[in-house]
Structure formats: structure tokens, C-alpha cells
Nucleic acid binder design. Structure first.
Lengths: 206, 206
DNA sequence: AACTCTATTGCGCGTGCGTCCAATAGCGAA
DNA sequence: TTCGCTATTGGACGCACGCGCAATAGAGTT
């Protein structure tokens, strides 16, 4: 393999591992798989990562962080807090994100057996909830939403979205994706004291 | 090991495998673990199960079905539909069920890559949702609940409970268990048009 | 052109896995 | 009591894993 700078090589490895993990799943990805994917030797992987667990944690981390940034960008386009909340829900319902959600399923399953993954997964989940919480608090301050418990509603909405996605991704066809999105939006609207349909309307506009 | 009838032996093996899986996780359970757990040889396991995958699938199936029956029994003790719903939520929040929920996480992660697991997981999830849906429909008919869309509310509640459990089990300490239970109950009460606190009150009585 | 530094190689180590099979033991029928 | 059937044993086999190390190769410097 052509020689590379350490930083570039590290990133190459993570990207190769990511490609394998999308195909085989996070926990089924092996050192040899990754080496073969990038056409190098297994020794190289260990030269850059102290353990396989750490490589897998890094892979998950990068995928999830990119998704978080993409969602933040989608939300930045909106003008109201209602619009930002709608963008958050839209990002979740996007079929393009199904592969990414599979990473989350793998990570949650893996968390109990891989400390590095658990730590990354916990931190990232808190970031997603924090993003939601910010929107809700700002929306309350601006008078768009009722005076609700932002922590409670943000965890509730995040859990609901996770649970719905889970059904859609792990058991395709058990719930129709559009219905799931609608139900999640309606329930959250009730939690926030918004008229039903507010989020749907805001997402069409944005 | 003392000689046994084939049926009894099969069940003995499944139970031993279940005990190991609760400790180490489904995917980390090995033939040798199971043999050692029941004080016998590894050859015996393969005399009764064509492959390890089949044994693990059987374990998941039995654990999940037993959990479903146990929940049904808890609910049978209640006198109103509100009480039955509260019992359903109580069963979910029970810390004893954490290791069972870890099985679900494993199953959902595995579902997209293992058809047999996906099929069992889907069917069992539908049974859980159906149980909830029945209670809601009966409760509407009896006038205990508002006239809501039972399918929507049951999937919403199930997803919310799954999502909350996920945080509690995969990321211990990120949300306090009691709060999660409370938030899930409150959101479902809003979906059903019940006064807040109804479920908590009903569960204390039952 | 010679040298140095380090990214990269490739294989071997120990472990643990699922699977398989020839040998054994023990119950029930004859 | 003897015999036959089958539940049970226990170890061998081949494979794949993560990991580590001594050897190599190739780019940049002098």
C-alpha cells in the first residue's frame, strides 16, 4: 500500500471499517475484514488502533457525529422553534438515515459488552436530547410552546422517535413509515400543548 | 449425567442456555458455556440442536414468550382497563426485566441480518402491541378512555416504552428509571385523554 | 548516492469457537 | 440375565479471531 501520513491513514482505516460495518454490522466486523477492504495487512490496523473495540467505537462515533451535524444544519434553515422541531422530526423520518439507525441498534446492543462504545453512545444520545431540549426551552421562552418540563418532553420525544425507528428499521413493513412519523409528531404535539398538525405544517413550509 | 427423555433433555438445555445468556448476553453464549452450566458434555447439546443459532433462537423465543405471559398475568389481576394498562407499564419498568430487555436489543440489532430472528422478533412485538391495543379498545368501549385511534396510541406507547427502556438499560445512569416510567406514563395519559397521574394511582391500588 | 526514519508487511502465537464422531453407559424389553 | 437401543461422553478437527513482532520498503534528507 502506498505510504501515507498517520492522520490520513487513520482516517482511511476508519472509512474502510465503516464500509464493512455497513455491510456486516458493527460487532461482526473483524480486523481482517477491514484490512482486506482497503487492500492492506492486518498489522497496519493494529499499528493505528490499540484494540479492535476502539476502532469500532471510533467508527460508530464518526457516523453518529456526521448525522448529528447534518441534522443541526437542517434545523438551522428554519426560522421558528416550531420549524426547527419539525426539521428534527423530518431528519429522523428520512429513509436515507436507515443505515445510520442500524449503527445505533448495533451500538445499543454492543454497549453492555464494549465500554468504549457505551461511553460514545451515551454521550451522543445526550447530545441529541440536548438539541431537542434547547429547542423546547427557546420555544417556551419565545411563547411558541406551553410551559412544559423541557427535560421530560425532550427525553420522551427522543425515546419515542428511537422506538418508532426501531420498528421501521428492524421490522420493515410492520408499521408504515409515514404513519410512524405522524404518530410520533402528534404525540409530541400533545406533550407540548400544540395543536395537532402543527409540525407537519411547519415541515412543509421549511 | 443421568439419562433423560428427549423432550425433557431439550428443555433442560434451553433453560441452561437461558441462564448463561442472562449473564453473558445472547451472542456471547457458547456451546461449552451451556454444557458446563448443566454439568454435561458439549456433544450432548449438538445431539439435540442442529446448530448453536437454533438453540439461541429458541432461548430468545422462550424468554420473550414467558415475559409476555407473565405480563398478561399481572394484567389479569386488575379490575379496570386503566388498572390493566397500569400493570402493563409496571411490568415494563420492573428492573428484573432488564436482562430480558438486553435480549431485545440483541434481537433488534440482529434482525436485519438474520431472517429467523427478524421473524420471531416481529411477531412478538406485534403481540405486545396487540395486547396494548386490546386494552385501549376495551377501555374506549367501556368509556374509561377517550375515543382515540387505538392502533396509533398502542404503537406510540410501545415505542415510547421501548425507547425509554433502551436508555435505562444501554446507558445506565443517563436517566433515572423512576423518571422514565413517570414520563412515559404521562405522555400516554395525554394520548388517551386521561388526567395526569391516573396510571400511577391505578398501579398503587393494583 | 547513501542513509535514516517510519509506514507497512506478513506471518505466527494463543485462544476459543462450532462441529463431528467413535466409544461408552445405562435403561427397558425379551 | 441378556441384549439392543439410544442417551451421553469427551476429545479431535478445522477455522477464525485479536494481537504482536521482526523484517521490509520507500520517501525525504544530506
Amino acid at each position: 500500500m502506498t505510504r501515507m501520513s498517520p492522520d490520513a491513514r487513520r482516517q482511511t482505516i476508519v472509512e474502510a471499517a465503516q464500509a464493512v460495518a455497513r455491510r456486516k454490522g458493527l460487532s461482526a466486523t473483524t480486523v481482517r475484514d477491514v484490512a482486506e477492504e482497503m487492500g492492506t495487512s492486518s498489522g497496519l490496523i493494529h499499528h493505528y488502533f490499540a484494540s479492535m473495540d476502539q476502532l469500532l467505537a471510533e467508527v460508530f462515533s464518526q457516523v453518529a457525529e456526521a448525522d448529528l451535524s447534518a441534522t443541526r444544519e437542517r434545523m438551522d434553515g428554519a426560522t421558528s422553534e416550531t420549524g426547527r422541531l419539525a426539521a428534527y422530526f423530518d431528519a429522523w423520518a428520512d429513509p436515507d438515515n436507515d443505515d445510520i439507525f442500524q449503527f445505533w441498534l448495533d451500538a445499543w446492543s454492543e454497549a453492555s459488552r464494549n465500554e468504549a462504545v457505551q461511553e460514545r453512545s451515551r454521550a451522543l444520545n445526550i447530545e441529541w436530547q440536548g438539541l431537542l431540549s434547547e429547542v423546547i426551552e427557546t420555544g417556551i421562552a419565545s411563547g411558541e410552546f406551553n410551559q412544559v418540563d423541557a427535560e421530560a418532553v425532550s427525553w420522551t420525544a427522543l425515546s419515542l422517535l428511537d422506538g418508532m425507528s426501531l420498528q421501521v428499521v428492524a421490522h420493515p413493513t410492520v408499521i408504515e413509515r409515514g404513519k410512524a412519523a405522524q404518530w410520533a409528531a402528534n404525540s409530541t404535539e400533545r406533550d407540548l400543548g400544540l395543536p395537532l398538525g402543527t409540525l407537519r405544517a411547519a415541515s412543509v413550509i421549511a
